[in-house]
Amino acid sequence: MNDYKNMPDEQLVQLSLNNQDYFYYLMKRYEIKLLRYIKRLTTVSQEEAKDIIQEIFIKVYRNLNGFNPKLKFSSWIYRIAHNEIINQYRKTKLCSSIIPLNIEDEANLIDAINDSIEIDGAYENLETAERVRKALSELPDKYREILVLRYLEDKSYEEISDILRKPPGTVATQINRAKASFKKIAWRHQLDKELIK
């Protein structure tokens, strides 16, 4: 088992093609990450998130031969997850008004969006936290997702470009627009007085 822990994804992909059992280790590697990603972008319950992840892993397995080794496996699996979330969204309108980001996620996001935002202390105020949550949920889906990928999933511009299938320049532009859009919404919610120095 320890051998597989250090094995690169690409090698596990090759092994999975010959023996399904190896696919387990690949899934294990991404199970928590993708569950978290789904929860960050949607309002589904834990059970629904598990259903989505099952769909994702099955699609990944069926398409293993289509994986291009020039791409990072993590980018490829996130792309499949992104597409599956969109599919589910179209079916059931998963993204409702409030996105259930946890306090730590919100803090990380805001911290990354604007260095000048003061989050310590402000988060002790639950009312403020609720307003931050609302502000985030007001962001258009495309902006919310790009911020989540960049600042919560810690993906590089190139990786985001591979995941969302957009040119790297467009990714950079959208990140800037998403940040600007969040600042505007925060101002509207009068969060600037409490969060921004």
């Binding site: 399904q20 696919f23 387990y24 899934m27 199970e31 099952q54 892993f57 099955i58 397995y61």
Partner: peptide, 9 residues
């Protein structure tokens, strides 16, 4: 979850 999916596969 991963084990369940593998079994399904």
């Amino acid at each position: 979850i991963s084990k369940d999916i593998l079994e399904k596969i």
